[in-house]
Computed example of a mutant assay.
Amino acid sequence: MVTVSLSGLSLAPIEPSDDEAVRQWYELRCSVVGADQPDDPPPCWVYERGRFRHSWSGVDKTGWLARDAGTVAGGCVLRLPTLDNLHNAEGEILVAPEHRRRGIGRALLAHLRVEATRQGRIRLVGSEVDHPLDPAAPDPAGRFATACAAVPALVETRRRLEVDSVDPAVLARLDAQARAKFQGYSLVQWVGATPQRWLDDAAYLTGRMSTDAPLDDLQWDPEVYDAARIQADDASSLARGLHMVTTAAVHSTGQLVAFTKIVGFATSSWFAGQWNTIVAPEHRGHRLGTLIKVANLRYAVAQRPELRVIDTCNADSNLHMIAINEAMGFRPHRRMAEWQLDL
């Protein structure tokens, strides 16, 4: 392990096998989430540990902890795509609340810039910690990004569904309206890894997530998926303790043409995220998106009766998907942005 000095800080890489360092990263994440997103559940230890030990396929990941006089003051992560987007890098910066406004964030960003450039990357992309809906509310992360010459390339809204407040009659109406255009399709559902028979179709659809979902000004190339990558990502997800519930639509030809996923964690099982939803272009217009989302919500609650809150995030320009989510009962919760910095 090589430790470097950075603006008075001691910066050391996080070795995946170093339980103490990984635990310190987790505790840093907990302090940041507790300060910035107090109405969210605390981070899941199983997931955070798994992020270092079970990376997504096609991504090289390195993390660092910044210490001030032996105390963890911040940390950062650099993710390098290796199968596509070879000119891009993704960065994440955390600064402990009690150590903010001391230049630590800028020092960590400078480190990420150096490392990304050294790897031949020309662009750094990062998600801003989400902030209140009120545009007049303080947004220190956004101010930091702007001051560092980053631009908000993709503006998003995180929406929240309070499961207990969902009106069953509304779901029944949405389901009936969707089924009126559902001729020639059937639904399949599973928990956990993608079944072998659907791997190729799932790979095709997952790849379209990077081309069909609005990216606005974000400069991100199409992602390359095949069956092996889907299997590897499923294995990583399970190793991170994720509880994956999927509903998909199958055309009469036997092709899987749409899917949606709700993902929970090993801890805080009352909370989950609605992740990828995609419909193959040639099968749009049949209300498949609505049908699979409604069916998957019911399926997820049946699998985890304690589920109470589901969050989902959409680009503000993704009006079609927003309309479906809001019809189900999702309501705006916080704002987000994907920031882009040319190196």
Results as ranks from 00 to 15, higher is better:
303 Q>K: 11
296 N>W: 01
255 Q>D: 14
281 P>G: 04
280 A>L: 13
258 A>R: 07
300 A>M: 05
282 E>V: 09
257 V>Q: 13
290 T>Q: 14
274 Q>K: 05
302 A>C: 05
290 T>A: 10
292 I>V: 15
269 S>F: 00
282 E>W: 14
247 T>E: 01
273 G>M: 09
275 W>T: 07
242 L>C: 02
257 V>G: 11
301 V>M: 01
283 H>V: 07
296 N>P: 06
253 T>K: 04
259 F>V: 03
245 V>K: 07
272 A>S: 13
246 T>K: 02
288 L>Q: 08
267 T>D: 14
283 H>C: 13
284 R>V: 07
300 A>G: 08
252 S>V: 03
292 I>T: 10
304 R>A: 12
246 T>Y: 05
291 L>W: 04
265 F>N: 12
282 E>H: 14
270 W>K: 00
263 V>K: 11
286 H>A: 14
252 S>I: 00
261 K>A: 02
288 L>D: 11
252 S>Y: 01
264 G>C: 09
278 I>S: 09
279 V>T: 15
274 Q>H: 15
271 F>Y: 15
289 G>T: 01
284 R>S: 12
279 V>D: 10
247 T>W: 00
243 H>S: 12
293 K>I: 01
247 T>K: 02
248 A>T: 00
271 F>R: 09
258 A>G: 05
300 A>R: 04
272 A>M: 03
262 I>D: 02
258 A>F: 06
274 Q>L: 12
267 T>M: 04
263 V>Q: 15
262 I>M: 08
243 H>C: 05
288 L>P: 08
283 H>K: 10
290 T>W: 11
299 Y>E: 13
302 A>I: 00
251 H>Y: 01
247 T>D: 02
242 L>E: 13
260 T>G: 10
243 H>A: 12
289 G>H: 02
274 Q>W: 05
261 K>V: 09
297 L>T: 06
245 V>L: 06
255 Q>Y: 02
244 M>Q: 14
299 Y>S: 06
257 V>W: 06
290 T>R: 05
285 G>C: 11
304 R>N: 12
264 G>E: 10
246 T>Q: 08
264 G>I: 10
260 T>F: 03
303 Q>P: 03
293 K>V: 03
278 I>K: 10
270 W>S: 09
260 T>D: 09
282 E>P: 07
270 W>D: 14
251 H>L: 03
258 A>I: 05
246 T>A: 05
245 V>W: 04
252 S>A: 13
290 T>N: 07
269 S>G: 04
288 L>I: 07
267 T>I: 00
268 S>I: 00
249 A>P: 06
250 V>I: 14
266 A>D: 13
246 T>C: 10
262 I>A: 01
259 F>C: 07
257 V>P: 09
304 R>S: 11
247 T>M: 02
244 M>S: 14
293 K>M: 08
279 V>N: 11
291 L>R: 15
249 A>Y: 04
266 A>L: 02
278 I>G: 08
287 R>E: 15
303 Q>C: 13
